[in-house]
Each structure stands twice: as structure tokens, then as C-alpha cells.
Design a protein around this nucleic acid. Structure first.
Lengths: 165, 165
DNA sequence: CAAGATTGACGATTCAATCTTT
DNA sequence: AAAGATTGAATCGTCAATCTTG
């Protein structure tokens, strides 16, 4: 029943909101300017690169990138037109569809990843102490533990057994 | 020259990315479902509500919500159509335009704010210890101090002298 | 010419069907 | 019927002009 935030809480909360707005903007801007892809495109390519055969089923990919099915479909459409990803049929389940990174996509990621990682260092990791980063990880996990149960019907949940990344 | 992240850094970083993706989604979903406005609309209304006469110049509002001018123009268009905000002329500078919250907008905010704040408590503030929230605020400010200088030409900077919120 | 603001076209995301396979 | 995936319409955001005033 205790509503509103204290002055101190509000200060911390608003700083957090600003960070959450600006950080992805900055990461996305670098990727867009230097490589012509968005931050969410980059995340797709990373997931594919880490998977066996550089390919994943659409629903796995949606789950691991916290994307909706339709959003991912549109996004793979665009990546396919750009030649970075290709669709394949799924042999074990004929409803399924598989997204596979092309060689062009791989080569783009190889060039983009070091720049992006450096940007993550410059604007987050290297700005913080080791303890602060560890605390940020703990905070994030706490928040996610509370949040994910409530979103289970709104978010694609991983379909089959596989190793989480 | 040191590239890539350690295993531990990557774990913390990815948890943070997930949080940053899911938290605004959850906040936005509640506002959309219960009140028919987006999270960024809510932020506009909050800023206006805190300002004298419940009104602000467009560029001030853009600066305080970290929005571009054109984005804000479109957004105010929509809020104006929804009857929550109205545009007024600026008397001191005839180039300027002023956005003023309507009574309808105020009444909507009065209803929405407690629900939203409770959601912020439930999913962030009350999930963390006092120390964790304080650290999160410090982290955010550190990141912003590094980030904002680089974005000075990309972001609207407050035009005239006024009290920051 | 620079600053404040808007506009229209284009791209990306969401939402509600739709289609196929299990 | 439910799960996997796609589609098209509508909404939201970005980008490059444009317009007006300082």
C-alpha cells in the first residue's frame, strides 16, 4: 500500500531510465553507421553464430532473443533480403522453419563483433569496477527472476531441450 | 587492444541486456493495457505534470525525455489527437511551440501514475536491497557521464536555463 | 546562416488474423 | 484443438528535407 518513491529512490530510478534509453541507442548507432545493421540484427547473428551449423529454429531464436514470433519473421525477411541469413526447411518437424547464417552474414559478424564489444567495454564494462559489474549482473538476475514468470504467456518459451547460452 | 569479455563479464552483460529488454516491455504493457498509452507517452505526461503551468517548450521536452525533435513532434501529434495534450504558441520566441497537458491528460496521469509506480516497485525497487538500488543509481550515473558527451550532437540539449528534474 | 519545429517517406514493431502440421 | 510460423494492417521511430523566425 506504500505508494510513490522516496526522493533518493526516484533519483536512482530516473538515472537508470536514462541509461536504459541511451545505451542501446549508442550501441545501435555504431552498428548502423559502420555496418548497416540494427542492434537487434546483431543479436540475431550472434545467436546463430553460437549455434551448431550456425542455424536455429525460428522459435528457438525468438526465445533466445526475447522476440515475438511475428517480429522475428519480419526481421528474418529483412536479413534474408540483405543476404545475411537464409531459411531452410526443418526435417524433424514440417511445421518448423530454420534460419541459417550465410557466409556473408558470418563475415559481417566477424568484422562487427570486435567493434561492438569494444563499444560495450568503452561505455559499460570498463566504466565500472569489477564489483559494480558483478552487482549489476546480480541485480539483473534478481529482476529477471521476478519478471520472467509473469511474462511466460507473453514471451516465446524455448520449445525443445537445448543448452542455454 | 584487449578485446572480448571474460566468461564472467559476459554472463553479467547478457543478464543486463535481458533486463534492459524486458523491463520496459513490462512497464509499457501495463500502461498500454490499462490506460491505452505507451511508456514514452507516460514519460511525456510526467514531465509536463512537473512543469509550471503543466506546459513545456518542445525542445525542453525533447531534451528532458531524451527524444529527437521529430519524434517528439509526431508523438505530440498523437497525444493531441487523443486529447491529452494541446499545442500553444510561444510568446517570447515566435519560432517556439509549447505543449500543454489538458485536464483530460492530467486526469489520466492521476489514474495511471500509482499503477505504474507500483509496477516499478514490484519489478525493480522492491526486488533490490537499498544498497543494490543505490549502486544501480551510481552505475547509471557513471555510464551517463561517459555517454552524454559523445551524444551531444545527436541529442537535444536543453535550450534555456531551467531547473533540472 | 543557425535554431526551433514540423512534415512526409521509409523502416521497424505490434497486433490480429491466417495457414499448415502435430 | 494447439504449436510453429507467416502475413498484412496499423502504429511508432528515424531520417532527410522544409519552413519560419532569430
Amino acid at each position: 500500500m506504500t505508494v510513490w518513491l522516496s526522493e533518493s529512490q526516484q533519483k536512482d530510478w530516473r538515472a537508470f531510465v536514462s541509461m536504459v534509453n541511451l545505451l542501446p541507442y549508442q550501441f545501435g548507432r555504431i552498428l548502423q553507421d559502420d555496418f548497416g545493421i540494427g542492434l537487434s540484427d546483431y543479436e540475431i547473428l550472434v545467436r546463430l553464430s553460437e549455434s551448431a551449423d550456425r542455424s536455429m529454429r525460428m522459435s528457438e531464436l525468438a526465445a533466445s532473443t526475447l522476440s515475438s514470433r511475428s517480429r522475428l519473421s519480419h526481421q528474418i525477411d529483412r536479413l534474408e533480403k540483405a543476404g545475411l541469413v537464409a531459411r531452410k526447411a526443418c526435417m524433424t518437424d514440417r511445421r518448423g522453419s530454420i534460419a541459417e547464417m550465410t557466409e556473408t552474414g558470418w563475415q559481417l559478424l566477424v568484422k562487427a563483433a570486435p567493434i561492438h564489444v569494444q563499444s560495450v567495454r568503452d561505455h559499460l564494462v570498463d566504466v565500472l569496477t569489477e564489483d559494480e559489474l558483478k552487482t549489476l549482473g546480480e541485480i539483473s538476475n534478481k529482476v529477471l527472476e521476478k519478471l520472467t514468470p509473469e511474462l511466460q504467456d507473453k514471451i516465446i518459451t524455448a520449445p525443445s531441450s537445448d543448452l542455454q547460452s
